[in-house]
Simulated assay, not measured.
Amino acid sequence: MTKAERSDYVLRRLGELYPDPPVPLDHSDAFTLLIAVLLSAQCTDVRVNQITPKLFGELGRTPQELAKRAVSEIEAIVKPCGLGPQKAKAIQKLSQILLDEHAGKVPAELEALERLPGVGHKTAQVVMAQAFGVPSFPVDTHIHRLAQRWKLTDGKNVVQTERDLKRLFPESSWNKLHLQIIFYGREYCSARGCDGTSCEICQTLFPERKKALKTKKA
């Protein structure tokens, strides 16, 4: 298969497997999504979904409420997500910045989001895609790994992977496709569960591949 044929197959098959993929992180608005995505760094979505109800229930679910809280209060709750001191400080500080610079609202602009404490490029893109519906292609470890296994990129880094995937797939598919790849990676093509030779899509795209494929880390 050519790269174009592989990308067409991936798009079609993932659409069949996950026609309406849900957003993995529980949230009620752009702000609670932003906090949940921030907490998900080096943490599972399952753990974040266990922590955010307590965080929002006890300390508040708006920038106005969380900006008033001591960093230590926030850290006491978010500690199980890992990187507790950094995440707690970022949550308190970005809440205050939203009040001071954005009228208490999460900005629907990528550059403005990336300027917030604790918010990197991937986090900002997730918020743009899932909160505001702006075509984005956040690349996490699952997407980076699968894009290499399917030879849709040579995988030097997540920036290149994002750029290559955006070139291959229609913009209208980005927001749904990035979730579909994540779900497929977790269910069928995990880091340990598949070595590039055993899952359905790997076998279909590369039926002659016999040796395990080493992928470059993000």
Rank of each mutant, 00 (worst) to 15 (best):
3 K>M: 15
27 H>L: 08
89 K>N: 04
42 Q>I: 11
174 W>F: 13
43 C>V: 11
22 P>L: 08
113 L>R: 01
30 A>K: 06
172 S>H: 15
8 D>I: 03
153 T>P: 13
71 V>F: 10
32 T>I: 06
168 L>N: 00
55 L>M: 13
17 L>S: 11
106 V>P: 08
112 A>I: 00
151 K>Q: 10
64 Q>E: 15
132 F>D: 06
148 Q>H: 10
180 Q>W: 12
44 T>A: 12
119 V>N: 14
189 C>M: 11
21 P>Q: 03
189 C>T: 06
71 V>K: 13
115 R>C: 03
209 R>S: 00
118 G>K: 13
23 V>H: 00
33 L>E: 07
130 Q>V: 10
52 T>F: 13
61 R>S: 13
147 A>H: 08
150 W>R: 03
128 M>E: 10
199 C>D: 10
179 L>C: 03
100 D>C: 12
61 R>L: 03
31 F>Q: 06
8 D>E: 14
168 L>Y: 01
204 T>Y: 03
189 C>V: 06
71 V>T: 14
78 V>P: 14
116 L>A: 06
211 K>V: 05
97 I>L: 14
20 D>H: 14
147 A>R: 04
55 L>Q: 12
59 L>Q: 05
57 G>W: 15
38 L>N: 01
121 H>L: 06
198 S>C: 04
106 V>A: 10
215 T>S: 00
60 G>P: 12
50 Q>A: 11
84 G>M: 07
206 F>V: 07
30 A>R: 05
1 M>E: 07
13 R>C: 02
19 P>I: 12
150 W>G: 02
195 D>I: 01
167 R>K: 15
129 A>D: 02
170 P>H: 04
123 T>V: 15
194 C>W: 01
210 K>V: 00
36 A>R: 01
8 D>S: 13
57 G>N: 11
126 V>S: 00
33 L>Y: 00
161 T>G: 13
22 P>E: 12
209 R>N: 08
182 I>S: 08
211 K>T: 07
75 E>D: 14
125 Q>T: 03
19 P>H: 11
87 K>M: 10
106 V>C: 12
132 F>N: 02
200 E>W: 06
76 A>Y: 01
64 Q>A: 15
199 C>V: 05
19 P>T: 13
18 Y>I: 11
182 I>K: 07
115 R>L: 15
124 A>E: 09
163 R>K: 14
61 R>F: 02
54 K>V: 13
39 L>Y: 12
128 M>N: 09
89 K>F: 04
39 L>G: 11
114 E>L: 04
70 A>T: 12
56 F>M: 04
13 R>T: 09
86 Q>W: 05
140 D>Q: 09
158 V>G: 02
118 G>P: 06
24 P>M: 02
